[in-house]
């Protein structure tokens, strides 16, 4: 067994094995991974896991009922089952997280790699713009956007994405600046590869691991901002089951019916904690020097 891999496949498998092993021996990261897996399963199988309850059907005779064998987490102010609503809320949360990632990562990568690869005035201009967005107060700006565009999931996603991309541009830029100076890029240039081919085929894939680690660490922040917008009434609109909005609905009855606000809040907390734990673990794998 030599240290150097003999083929590309062996290198990939070896790296994957090492990454998985590092995650599995780290109990915190493993717990984070489990929470995220449970979140995804809950979102996918929500209708089956809801045990015959539905998230939207009101039952006014049974409003604000305490947790029982029928309603595991009790019912809310319209008599809807909180257990089912919490399960279906996982779908909303995952949707927001996925949409924000899909918007933020390409923008960040594009700005960062272009700035880092070309340098000069392009770099200066792009990084100035990035710095401007980085210096913005995130929640307030997201609020102003959501207020101007009208409440709703799509606008919440746009608002969060607009304040989240600069961090990725910074990371992609610093990675690109290191990669662009390495010999294999020079070799590719000599072979006649076009600039865009170098950027997309050689630089972007190498930036991805740092970007993914950062994204995992950011997930908690994204979830908390989305829930905050939902709490203020600017996220998913009723009757959609969204965790932040559910906490908000339980506000007025917190002193008497604690479960209405407490349980969706716990869901937000556990899921953010899961992403934070997983992100810390991934960072240990991909970037051992920063711990």
């Amino acid at each position: 067994m030599s240290e150097a891999p003999a083929s590309r496949r062996q290198a990939i498998l070896g790296n994957t094995y090492r990454a998985v092993r590092t995650i599995l021996v780290n109990p915190a990261a493993l717990a984070g991974l489990l929470i995220v897996v449970v979140l995804v399963l809950a979102a996918v199988f929500a209708p089956w896991l809801a045990m015959g309850q539905t998230p939207l059907r009101p039952d006014l005779a049974n409003r604000l009922a305490a947790p029982s064998s029928l309603h595991w987490f009790g019912t809310d102010e319209l008599g809807r089952d909180i257990y089912a609503r919490t399960l279906f809320g996982a779908r909303v949360t995952l949707t927001i997280v996925a949409l924000v990632s899909v918007v933020v990562v390409p923008i960040g990568l594009a700005v960062g790699t272009v700035a880092g690869y070309f340098g000069g005035w392009i770099d200066t201009v792009l990084m100035r713009i990035t710095d401007i967005f980085l210096a913005f107060p995130k929640l307030i700006l997201a609020l102003a956007f959501a207020a101007a565009l009208g409440p709703g999931i799509e606008n919440a996603v746009i608002a969060i994405a607009l304040t989240a991309w600069p961090a990725y541009a910074r990371i992609a830029r610093s990675e690109t600046m290191t990669i662009a100076r390495s010999d294999f890029i020079q070799a590719t240039v000599l072979q006649g590869a076009s600039t865009w081919r170098i950027l997309f085929r050689h630089i972007v894939p190498l930036c991805l691991s740092s970007v993914i680690v950062r994204l995992t660490l950011d997930m908690a922040g994204i979830i908390l901002t989305a829930a905050g917008l939902g709490f203020l009434g600017l996220g998913a609109q009723p009757p959609t089951a969204e965790w932040g909005a559910m906490v908000s609905a339980g506000r007025d009855v917190i002193l008497d019916q604690w479960w209405v606000a407490t349980i969706p809040g716990l869901a937000i907390f556990i899921v953010s904690l899961g992403f934070n734990l997983l992100g810390d673990g991934l960072r240990d794998v991909f970037d051992p020097k920063s711990t």
């Binding site: 809040g265 907390f269 934070n276």
Partner: peptide, 14 residues
Amino acid sequence: YSVPVFWLGLVGLF
């Protein structure tokens, strides 16, 4: 880093 401030506030009030 993980707990939503609006929820912690409500639970604190409770």
